[in-house]
Write a protein that binds this DNA or RNA. Structure first.
Lengths: 359, 359
DNA sequence: ATCATATGTTGCAGACAACAACAAACCTCG
DNA sequence: CGAGGTTTGTTGTTGTCTGCAACATATGAT
């Protein structure tokens, strides 16, 4: 005898149990039995198994107040599996080491000088202990390569390979908006959303879609390059009338707080910009909503400030370009994880890969 | 002893084997061993198992010309599992009974008088022997209900329940465009496409997206209600400037052959319409492409004729509204299954459900 | 204190897939 | 035409897995 026969099942069940705890927090064995649809004895075997390997910790004898033998509570050990998450922006790098169960164990942030190589900076942040490493970055990401990122100025860059070369380990690459959508769904308060659209305002505008908890296969939505004004302003991407160009993102959005403040103080140009931007954004959104049919939209990055200060034109422009039936199911909100969403979501993506690999 | 212990594995493997044969056609046992990653003996057990239950037929002793014992070829028995597929249009009903492996066993078509109830007509077509029943219809379909269909004039109709009441069996409901996309992917020649966007021209314009062979979760794209001209013509849906309204679908598209013919004979109005329609379509497509990033687009329904007769304006408008990086990977074509796509795809969706249910 | 209830634990049985050895059926080459 | 090589199906064995049932344990209720 040499290798596993029907060990596959055990592996699958182990992964399922771990994932259940990771996503839903500590649970009793009884609850796990219910959730996984397995027998008490099987859960017992799996749990002691995983406790022996250090992934789980069981705290016994929790009296619940109701009749019957008290159930043992089982929780994951965060340190037993960790995931490195990095968010790359044009001007800075953010890092988090996230443990099983979702706890953030370490965190750091480093400024990135203009022109500096992000890869070596990443290598300085991450250690090799993590079970998975995920990098989130703004742009059109497809299977480890960034096809196009106005924000980072990268075109067809094989980022996963570059990161691997710099750090000596495998990397997964996702786009910031999709990562943030995943994060808000998994650890924010958007878990009820069936189709969650996350809008991310950085130097560019991107959007990410999470459907029933799963990132939409195949990368992000280049929201900034929806054409809202055919034949309009010239955009860096070579088109005309892109949302990014029409909004004059570079001029106003980079310092959105100052712009909203100025508008509040009666600055006509700032006011005008806010109104026009809101309308343009709403129109672009209309097309995206019609194309994807979300039931919740989150305004992240500096779009958060834009939306909070000027929701009315966004809503009305959206109303003029979206089917009533799609609009009626739509909630517009701002994210609860703030700037952390992408980092959290990237880590969550890593854990998904870890669980998949276990099976 | 009463019920299955670890029978789950066997069921999974049985389903996997059947699905493999259904999708890839007859294969030898050796090929199945390779494809499923199971042991020869396991494949043998599964095959005889399924042959005994009548799902498979093994033809032995096929000499391949190369050395070694000739492998037994195993193929599905179409009659052993069948799926009813129905395509509902405003004016007619199409039905197909499709067998395991994809063979169409029966087919029929009935005209639907204006105002007639489609449900009872469906009941007249389908018999109760099929393992699954799927209905494709144009519009915004979500979990058995049609939220909105300009073509059928239905709003928030619980079609699955209605069909169930009329026929006494469970129904799955999908939208025509998505079904056609699935069909072209599974049985057409679009299997290489990673993201396949199928545009369907009926009385309305819808689109369906298939990503790596799987229908995008959550229904179709209301292509006809992308706003291409803010503040433009009034549309039935209540918005202004929708693609459907701007294209004047009702006036010209319903009889597209006559329009293209007239344009060919020098009719200025028809020519104008073709050019303007192509441009509007291209612009709407630009938004959808930016939002979904497909690598192949198929023009189905009457959009097929429109595209074949007037591709240039479509392409140039698309070029003006799509990121170069998305455009460069894009192939534009017409479907190979013609009008059958939606029916085939609906059946394929049904088989997917059947296989899922087996596990 | 006793009973009811809910939960962990243990031993057992049925099932399953991998493995290895063997049998079968083909090809090639002398 | 027969021997050797090659590929594939078959069979018996083995280790592992999960469900089940009976038992043990720990609580609340009476």
């Amino acid at each position: 005898m040499a290798l596993p026969p029907a060990v596959e099942l055990r592996r699958r069940n182990r992964a399922a149990l771990l994932e259940q705890l990771h996503r839903h927090g500590p649970q009793t064995r009884a609850e796990l039995t219910e959730a996984l649809g397995l027998n008490r004895s099987t859960i017992g075997a799996l749990a002691t198994d995983l406790a022996d390997s250090g992934h789980l910790q069981e705290t016994t004898g929790q009296s619940t107040g109701s009749a019957g033998r008290p159930s043992t509570l089982v929780a994951c050990v965060p340190q037993s599996i960790t995931v490195s998450a990095v968010e790359i922006r044009a001007d800075r790098l953010r890092f988090a080491l996230v443990g099983l169960g979702g706890e953030v164990l370490e965190r750091s942030e480093t400024a990135l000088e203009e022109g500096a190589d992000a890869m070596t900076a990443v290598a300085g942040l991450t250690r090799g202990t993590a079970a998975a490493a995920v990098a989130a970055m703004p742009g059109l990401v497809d299977e480890g390569t960034v096809a196009h990122s106005t924000e980072l100025g990268w075109v067809d860059r094989r980022v996963a390979a570059d990161l691997e070369a710099a750090t000596g380990r495998e990397w997964k690459v996702v786009d910031t908006a999709t990562a943030a959508a995943v994060g808000e769904w998994a650890r924010g308060d958007a878990r009820e959303a069936r189709k969650l659209l996350y809008l991310h305002g950085g130097r560019g505008l991107t959007a990410g879609l999470v459907i029933e908890g799963r990132a939409q296969r195949g990368g992000s939505i280049q929201l900034g390059h929806i054409v809202v004004e055919p034949g309009g302003r010239e955009c860096e991407c070579g088109l005309r009338g892109c949302l990014e160009a029409e909004m004059e993102v570079r001029a106003y959005a980079e310092d959105i707080e100052r712009t909203t403040l100025a508008a509040g103080m009666g600055d006509g140009a700032a006011r005008d910009w806010l109104r026009r931007s809101g309308e343009d954004l709403g129109r672009a959104l209309g097309a995206v909503v019609t194309a994807t049919g979300p039931d919740e939209i989150l305004f992240g990055g500096w779009l958060r400030e834009l939306y909070l200060s000027t929701a009315a034109p966004v809503r009305s422009a959206l109303a003029e370009t979206t089917l009533p039936h799609l609009r009626s199911k739509l909630r517009l909100r701002t994210p609860v994880l703030g700037d952390e969403g992408a980092l959290i979501g990237a880590a969550e993506t890593g854990f998904e890969a870890v669980f998949d690999r276990m099976r």
